[in-house]
Simulated assay, not measured.
Amino acid sequence: MMGSSNNQVSAGLRPVGNASVDAKMFAMAFDASPTPMVVTDPRLADNPIVWVNDAFLTLTGYARADLQGRNCRLLQGPDSDPRTIDAIRDALRRQAPVEVELCNYRKDGSSFWNAMTISPVRNDSGELVYYYAAQADMTEKHALELALQETNDELERQVHEQTADLRAALEEKTALLHEVDHRVKNNLQVISSLVLLKARRTPQGEARDALQGMAERIGALSMVHRMLYSAGDVTRFNLEEFADDFMSDLTAGIDPARTAVTAEVDPISLPAAIAAPLALMLHELATNAVRHAFPNDREGRVSISARRCETGLRLQIEDDGIGRNAAAPNPAGFGCSLVEMVVKQLRGVITWHEPGSGTRVEIVIPLQSESPRPATSAPREATLGQAG
């Protein structure tokens, strides 16, 4: 059959249009093609090979006599993918074309990747007479893909190791910074306690007031390090959480029936470096408002807000008290000077307003464009007191 297969195949080939080309020339052209080709006859038992070209023999290492009457499955072996084989069988069952890549084996047992396009060939009556398959050796491509995959796996392994090392170093640095914040917090608390103890043993007057004020400022700084110690990210802090801690400390000694303190703070992520000056500034302004805006048991309200703005962070502390001009002068006080110094340090702008009753302070602090990072939660209002 193999000896006469060229005639069998060429008998089914016909010229196109008016061209009068001998069908044997097509068979000769296919036989001389560098592309491996094979033809099988589904009309015979087990769809055997009836024609191959020399390129196919070179690719597989078989001789024509080895292939006579054999099915193409003789090229399959242990690593031939069953799913791909099933796809070929399904296409043959449906008499449909199919393109696949399959691990095949040469006569000497060596494997190669075979990219094949299998097409049904029909006669003028539409009857299926042959299957034609053009093939290509894709072994080098698969070897390159495997090498690339191995290289990629190795790179991923190295990246994973380096990432693990960096993560370990970062965790060590974070733990160290947390420990620093913890120790600074403890030291500040001790210092604050010592200053308060000295204040209690100092006669009433400017010196005692100054010591108590200093102890409170040290306490505000201690609160900052307490918050940073408990935060997950040592380089940043959440302004809303910061405000919660600050408000808890601020209102600890306030009568809620006389003075109401509210805060509306956006959940903005800020650099840890500005936590301390921000705490000092808020402590000074809010404490002064609570203590000095409502003399003689006067009732009132203090509101604190912190919002993002085009230029950075906008802070506002407002009260409906007697106003700065009506307050008793305090020659020993330096709260306003401290606030203005901190604002200048943060490259901000402070504006004092006297709306007729009370005082409103507006502070704008510039932030780098990448610094503010809103948290996922929405702003909230924390009401910590009700005016009677």
Rank of each mutant, 00 (worst) to 15 (best):
N114P: 04
N114Y: 00
N114S: 07
A115D: 03
M116V: 12
M116D: 02
T117Y: 03
I118N: 01
I118A: 02
I118D: 01
S119K: 11
P120W: 00
R122L: 08
N123R: 09
D124S: 10
D124I: 07
S125C: 07
G126H: 04
E127I: 11
E127R: 13
L128H: 03
Y130S: 04
Y130E: 04
Y131R: 05
Y131N: 04
Y132G: 12
Y132L: 15
Y132K: 05
A133V: 08
A133N: 04
A133W: 01
A134K: 03
A134L: 13
Q135H: 06
Q135F: 00
A136N: 10
A136E: 09
A136Y: 02
A136L: 08
D137F: 00
M138T: 07
E140G: 03
E140V: 12
E140F: 00
K141W: 01
H142W: 05
H142D: 04
H142Y: 14
H142T: 05
H142S: 04
A143R: 15
A143W: 02
E145C: 06
E145V: 11
E145W: 02
E145P: 02
L146Q: 15
A147T: 13
A147P: 01
L148T: 09
Q149L: 11
Q149A: 15
Q149S: 15
E150N: 14
E150S: 13
E150M: 10
T151W: 00
T151C: 05
N152C: 08
N152G: 08
N152W: 03
N152R: 14
D153A: 14
E154H: 06
E154A: 15
L155F: 05
L155I: 15
E156Y: 03
V159C: 06
V159Y: 03
H160S: 14
H160C: 08
E161R: 14
E161H: 10
Q162D: 11
T163Y: 01
A164R: 14
D165S: 09
D165R: 14
D165Y: 03
L166S: 13
L166T: 10
R167I: 07
R167T: 15
A168M: 08
A168E: 12
A169I: 09
L170W: 02
